[in-house]
Design a protein around this nucleic acid. Structure first.
Lengths: 135, 135, 135, 135
DNA sequence: GTGGTCTAGACCACC
DNA sequence: GTGGTCTAGACCACT
């Protein structure tokens, strides 16, 4: 399901959170779909169940999944445009990064292209890019 | 000059690096402009000189400043488009964030607007947005 | 384990970095092998732990080792041929040195021999040559 | 005549030494040819004469030039194969670098090619490669 | 004055 | 136990 880098400086649970977010964002995991149980996941990835737990908890507080006692964890359907705080955060982060990109010499055209192509494939599958920068 | 959060989980020197990078990217600090000396900065922020040094050194290895023994530290002028690795990294990070923004309901138009306005004010001053998310 | 020259103009931590790099390149230290802990090394060399840390950190940013909080530091396995920048650097340095060697009267045959014998013993142990020239 | 990087961590006089060595090795500067006087050079590069002096002194101790009181400095003709110490040093440095190159995944064939092409153009002009690695 | 190295010792988070 | 951050203070080389 995933490829985790056990040697990365980024904690494993954070890597897990990122990967799961990607799957949810790219709608590989559909709204209200049930996630693998903590134990299943732990076994499959040969990783400590506590680590999985931590990742799930983080995903819940970030609003990407919800958990029902005794039933399991599920993908939380997005209420488009309602999550003001998160949107604000993402926008701030984006501004910072876009600024840096421009500073580094990336052209505005290129950035527009990125937006376009990403929008086009919205709902499709994302590619696996292992980002290790914010470790 | 800065506001540092001494209680944050993000190390002080990292906060410093981020702030300085912003100032450089937004060209508040101009190319070849001299930075406050390690000791000045330490005094002003009531922080140990070693911590400032660590930040300056990190900025140097990241290619944002250069230091001359006995003279001081200075903003390194960008060689536009030459820094292949950094550009690649930023692009990967951008893709991820743009994807997330679209998922959250930010419209493509809005993203295009962001690029435009940032490009317009390229060379101008940026606003101070204190991002402490990845702490 | 090492011989460090505390009087050399080359900083101790840099000497350490160089020695460690040699051990890693010569595969005396195998991939994913655990390095002596910061404190162990400090005690053994009667050197301040901070100095060891600085060396380890430098090795990490140079991509030769990776460190896991609470676990230790380890030799980073090379992803052969992936490190474009470093390869370019080494090639430039090599060209310079080869040029100088030819100028000094070293025959091309001799240089070919060096390459051959080094390639033959690839994976074997290298000899310790303490180069202190650029100090 | 040269391009010096005043921002580099490598001292200016060292950069000068390197550039001069290149010119001598590539026989752009012929044996027994007179070098520009310290004052000329200082004026041309708008650099302190003391810095030039230091570079010339270094070149002399390294055996690349000789100075005659009241006359000037000149390129020292190489006595091919006689400079045992320097040859040994270069060989050791080469071994280290070749080892590193192989470790990074550069093929032995490629290294042989480098030797061949350099030997072919022996006596020709070298290309300007700004190496900042051993600062 | 400047950046840079080093030591000594404290503290934290993670495992 | 581990790596990592931070402080306090000393010393060096270079301008």
């Amino acid at each position: 399901m995933f490829e985790l880098d056990l040697r990365s400086r980024k904690p494993i649970y954070e890597q897990l959170v990122d990967k799961m977010k990607e799957l949810i964002i790219n709608e590989v995991l559909k709204p209200d779909e049930q996630l693998p149980s903590v134990r299943q996941m732990a076994q499959q990835l040969t990783i400590n169940p506590n680590t999985i737990q931590k990742a799930y908890r983080e995903l819940e507080t970030q609003g990407f999944i919800y958990s029902l006692k005794g039933k399991g964890s599920f993908v939380k359907p997005m209420e488009t445009g309602k999550d003001v705080d998160k949107i604000l955060q993402v926008k701030q982060d984006l501004e910072k990064l876009l600024h840096e990109a421009l500073y580094l010499g990336v052209s505005a055209e290129e950035l527009h292209e990125m937006v376009k192509s990403l929008e086009a494939m919205k709902g499709g599958h994302g590619q696996d890019d292992s980002n290790d920068r914010n470790q």
